[in-house]
Design a protein around this nucleic acid. Sequence first.
RNA 1: GCCCCCGUAGCUCAGUGGAUAGAGCAUCCCCCUCCUAAGGGGAGGGUCACACGUUCGAUUCGUGUCGGGGGCACCA
Length: 556
Amino acid sequence: MKAHLTELLAQAAKSLTQNADFDASNLAIQLERPKNKDHGDFSTNLAMLLAKPLRQNPRAIAESLIQALPTSAYVEKVEIAGAGFINFYLGANAKQAIIGLIAAQGEKFGHNNIGQGRKVQVEFVSANPTGPLHVGHGRGAAVGDCLARLLDANGWAVTREFYYNDAGVQIDNLTHSVQLRCRGITPDDPLWPEAGYRGDYIADVAKAYLNKETIVADDMSVTATGDVEDAESIRAFSVAYLRHEQDLDLRAFQIKFDVFSLESALYTDGKVESTVQSLIASGHTYEQDDALWLRTTDFGDDKDRVMRKTDGGYTYFVPDVAYHVDKWNRGFDRVINEQGADHHSTITRVRAGLQALNVGIPQGWPDYVLHQMVTVMRGGEEVKLSKRAGSYVTLRDLIEEVGCDATRYFLAARRADSQLIFDIDLARAQTNDNPVYYIQYAHARICSVLAQWAGDASSLPTVDLSPLNSAHDAALMQRLSEFPEVVENSATDLAPHTIANYLKDLASDLHSFYNEHKILVEDETTKLARLALVSATQQVLRNGLQLLGVSAPNKM
RNA sequence: GCCCCCGUAGCUCAGUGGAUAGAGCAUCCCCCUCCUAAGGGGAGGGUCACACGUUCGAUUCGUGUCGGGGGCACCA
C-alpha cells in the first residue's frame, strides 16, 4: 500500500516539475503513518520539500500535487492539512485486504527478502569460561538472539557465533583458584589471592575434578585426571566445566549457537602469527621500548596501541583482529558483534587493525551493537548477590525466578544503549502490569474464541469482510498492516526492542476490539468477518513473539 | 582530564526533523446476566535536564554546560 501511494506521488511530482529546472526523480518521497487518526491513514510532507526548489508556498504545491495525482481504487479521499501535509484516506477495501494477505503468508507474514540470502554472522554472549552467565550476558543473549531472528526474517543467512577466551590471565586465575580449592583452601583464607575467583561454583569444579568426572560441553569433552599438581589438566577441565555450565544457562534461556570459536585455536592455527606478519608488512607497525606497536592513530584512534608486550606475549586485541580476519575470510557480507558497552574501546582498535591489513575490508566493518548495564531490583531494592556466583546475579537464577519468556522479553524490550532496570516483582507479576502476559493473553484469548467457535479456520480467508467497518476494526487492521514495516525497520536499525513495543500496541488494539465487539454473535456474516480478523491477529502475534523467542500459549 | 551511551509524566520507558509529545504502572472515577476482568473506558499529571545555534519547522540535528553510567593499563 505504501509503495502504491509512493508511486502515485512520484508521478504527480514528475508532472508538476517537468517544466522546472529541478529533477524530481531522485526525490526521496517520505510517506508516514500519522499518529493522529484525523490526519488520515498515510501522510506526506512532499509539498514542503518541494517548496524551496519550486519557490512556491507548500499549500499551493500540495494543491497542484493533488490535481496531478492519478486515481486509485484504494484511495477514498486526499486532503491538504496544516502547513502543507497531504493526507491520504484509504477505503475500507484497502484496509481489509491485509487479512487475506496474512492468511496467505501465514508464519512468513512480515518477512521480506532484503538480505537476499547474503551471509551475516551475529556474535553474541561470548562470555569467558570463568563462571556462570550473569544478567548482563542475559541481555546480550536476548538482544543478540533477537537480532539473529530479525535478520533471518529479513532474508539473511544467519550464523550465530559464540567466541570465548580460553587463554590468558583470566584463565590462569581460574586454574589457580580451582587448584587452591582442590587443596582445601577457601576464599576466606589469607592465602587466597586477590585476583582469585570466589564464587561457590569454584568449589564444585574442584570437587568434580577430584572425582575425575567427564564433562561434555556443546563444543568439547574433557575428563579430569584428578591430579592436583597438573595445572594443565585443571585448566582444561575447568574451562570445559564452566563452558558446560554456560551451555545449561543458554539452554534454560532457549538459545542455540551454530559455532563456538576459541581464542586458543587462533594461536594453534597460526592465525595470530600470520596476522601479525601481515600487519608488519603493511608498514603500520613500529618497534619502541622493546615492544611492537600498531599505529592505530592512522585510522582514527587517539593513541597507538601495543601489539606485542615486552614479555613477548600479544595484547588482547591482536587475536581479536586475527579472529575478525577469519570472519572476513569465511565470507560474511556482514558481521554484527553484540557486546556489553564496557568493551567499547575495542571497536576502534579492531577496525584499525583490519584497515591496516588493507585486504579490502570496508571501513566501519564489522557492525557493533553495545548494550548498557542491567540493574536488578526486587522489592524496591537492588539485588547484587547470588549464592552461586557470589558477586553478581546469574542468568539462571533469574530464569528460575521469573521464567524464560518474561526474562527474554524484559531484556530485549529496551533500547540496547539505555541502561536497564530489571524489576523482578514486575516480571513475575501475573497481572496486566506485566507486558509479557498482556501480549500472551491477547493470543490466548483468540485461541479460546476460535476453539469455542469450533469451525473450519481454513474457510476464514475467503469470508466477506465488509462488516469490519468500526473504528476498532480499522485500528486493528491498520496495526496488522504495519507489521512488515516494523520487522524491516527493526532489522535495519538493529533495534529488536521495537518488536516488543509493536506487540504491546497490537495486544492493546486486540483487547480494545475484544471488549467492544462480541465475536461469536448470531449474525453469521459478522461472526465470520470478526473471526477472520482475530485469526489474522493471532498469526501476527505469533510471528512477532517468535522474533523475540517468547512463546505464544493457547491457554493461560 | 579525554572518549562513548543516557537524561522525556511521581516510577519504568517509547517516540528521534514535522501537525495538540505517547504507553504501562501509581492516583481518582466507571464497565463482568456477556467469547478468559491476566481485560476495557475515562480523569488528572510534562518549560521533552539547561543554554545557544542550524532549519519554513527542533524533544529529535550541532556546540557548550550540568546530572547518571561505562571506558580510558604493555588486563580481557
